[in-house]
Amino acid sequence: MTRWGATLLCLGIASVLSVSARAERPAKPQPGRDFQSAETRKLEADEAANPAYLWLEDGRRLWRHPAGAANRSCESCHGASETALTGVAARYPRVVPGTGRLVNIESRINDCRVTRQEAPAFKAESTELLGLTLLVTLRSRGMPRQVVIDGPAAPIFERGRTLWMTRQGQTNLACSQCHDDNVGKSLRGDRISQGQSDGWPAYRLEWQSLGSLHRRLRACSLGTRAEVLDYGSDDYLALELYLAWRGGSLPISSPGIRR
């Protein structure tokens, strides 16, 4: 190949890369609530009517309650739930130094529960885990997520990005085909959102319950007839990191209400 040809090839690759780069972080990030009906948005904004706040009541009770062989409460280390862990949730998911393992809020809470409280881990989607996750997430409400995607997180981030772009399941759809290419269009009576994670954990009316981001991702996998993965699986964690970065300046607005 001539030098000129190689240059042209490089330019070609660069233009393909720039197209996919443009597709991966929306120029104007829009919160999930923007794609909901006026009534749903009103319910989300009302802290007395938004049923997700029932889980906050559970979280607050658990926060003060000593548990496990260590007989310690969250409060005994972290202080009152109204002031503890400000801005912490915005930095998650993050890699635990020295381990290379990516943890989200849910797994961080369970780590604390097992190692500090010496109590059995909470089950995925249990009232307890959702309640504490919501409590901790609310302490970063209004703040944009600021996750680290370089260093040991870099390969995990790349994995998340690749998953976002990869066609999956019997419908042969990638996340980006709906949530980048067809945002705002109608799909089964819904408007396609940007797929932002700002409102999660959220109360989904279909579930009549609060649910984690991973539960939402499982519903997406099911919808595209792809393999539904376990809660806390490496792929969903990688996707969670990618989504947190993709949200850019979007402030955390959990608990959202979704259809």
Binding site: E47, L54, E57, D58
Partner: peptide
């Protein structure tokens, strides 16, 4: 007893 929330 179920979890409740009362705002008043």
């Amino acid at each position: 007893m179920s979890t409740t929330r009362i705002v008043m």
